[in-house]
Design a protein around this nucleic acid. Structure first.
Lengths: 251, 251
DNA sequence: TGAACCCTTACGATGCGTGAGCGTGG
DNA sequence: GCCACGCTCACGCATCGTAAGGGTTC
């Protein structure tokens, strides 16, 4: 005596809405039998199939594909799983980024209570920063990426500000000394300061250092926003001068 | 001289499609000025606003809400952020579950190459298992949850099968001994086996043990699928008998 | 005769993609 | 007159939620 259920009953049993069952019926995804008067009659086979549908939906597959899988080839499922997993993992990454951006924004907002506009700017900054990080990661080895990520963990806005200030100052000083001899004591002092700042970023790590060189070599290919941010440090002459000074101190 | 852009130009500049700009225009989300002939003319202010829109969209906010935020109260943003973050975190959890389910299914499939139907059953099992884990977690303290999670890390289908088999056997033996004296040697031996199996689950941990008691006490409230799975172990008499035997051995 | 279900039809919401058909001149 | 762009409809997609209007009877 295979019991049969009416829609509502069946819906509760399976944990879906009646509307959903109507929908699946129309899509020919789950077609129950009918009574003479047209009422839907669901049986245990229907329950099994519905469970499969729900499971596949949980994995993020669209109903169309679920229909194909269940109607034709269940074997195809094995092929679908890996790509679906990758898709979900990508989604997860984007979600993580968004969550991270909100976290940072919240953190930056608690102390100051600076109203409206600043918040948005902060959020935009954070997102751009994430984009940049992701872009620049291409240049680093796995090890270097890991080290940089760890470093960012305890990286505060204050530290960032300090670093930017130090570089800005150094750049100004170098620009003022462009006419000096790269071998001079003054130039060597500047080169020393430069080395120190670079080391502050690399942490003396060879992997990071190698990546950084690649990053810089390919600076023409950076995205617009990054180039814009880096614009103050793009003075070609400064880089040449420091290059020469570094060469001298090595010799 | 505030330069102005045509749609396509502006779209490329901002990294969105022309269609998107049309869309935002119609929603009154971003309305550029127009030339006499009706062409859209975007300026830098529009670029700023568009960046804000894109940023908020990245956070998962719907366009309607973005419009409200940008048109009326940017301050409201501070209120929105926390709830949005929570929403995203929930989404992430569901994603993680789906990813986990696929992983498990893939793992269980590689060796056997059992075709079609079995895969689906496996996936359903895995998902139900996850649901159960999530449900049961309510009963455990944070510490116990952590310990159980760690335990599950290296929990294989084989181990699971062994455990189920051991419990099934023990249950059968107890049922066969229901007429014995709970204080008898035979009963005490059964109680000892029982304690050992329980310990195999709790790992001798007090937190886990406490949670397990709560789980069992509330067994009437378990979801249907879990009750179904646990049905073979629901024989009231067995539990009473073991309870008495345990009491004897304590005394 | 009424409560409680069931049925079908159809618009709504989300964020654009993708033409179709037609005007502008950047 | 031709090419590159621009403009405005308007349908499509995915998955149901939510009535509206009207039969059936576990």
């Amino acid at each position: 005596v295979t019991k049969s259920y009416q829609v509502q009953e069946f819906a509760e049993l399976a944990g879906v809405t009646v509307r959903t069952l109507h929908h699946y019926d129309r899509l020919a995804l789950l077609r129950p039998r009918r009574t003479d008067s047209g009422y839907r009659k669901y049986g245990i086979h229907d329950l099994e199939r519905l469970e499969q549908i729900v499971a596949l939906k949980f994995l993020g597959l669209p109903l169309k594909q679920i229909k194909r899988l269940l109607d034709r080839d269940t074997r195809e499922l094995c092929d679908v799983l890996p790509s679906q997993r990758r898709a979900l993992e990508e989604k997860r990454q984007r979600l993580d980024q968004a969550i991270g951006a909100i976290r940072d924004a919240e953190r930056l907002l608690k102390p100051g209570k600076q109203a409206d506009a600043a918040v948005l700017k902060k959020i935009i900054e954070v997102i751009e920063m994430q984009d940049n990080v992701e872009f620049l990661n291409k240049y680093y080895s796995k090890e270097a990426q890991a080290k940089l990520a760890e470093r960012r963990e305890n990286w505060t806005p204050e530290l960032q500000e300090q670093a930017t200030a130090a570089w800005t100052e150094l750049f100004r000083d170098v620009e003022a000394a462009l006419s000096e001899d790269p071998a001079s004591e003054k130039a060597q002092a500047l080169a020393a300061r430069w080395r120190k700042l670079v080391e502050g970023f690399t942490g003396g790590d060879a992997d990071v250092s190698a990546g950084l060189k690649k990053v810089w070599a390919d600076r023409q290919q950076w995205p617009a926003t990054l180039q814009q941010q880096a614009a103050p440090f793009m003075n070609q002459k400064v880089w040449e001068f420091i290059g020469k000074a570094m060469a001298c101190s090595k010799a």
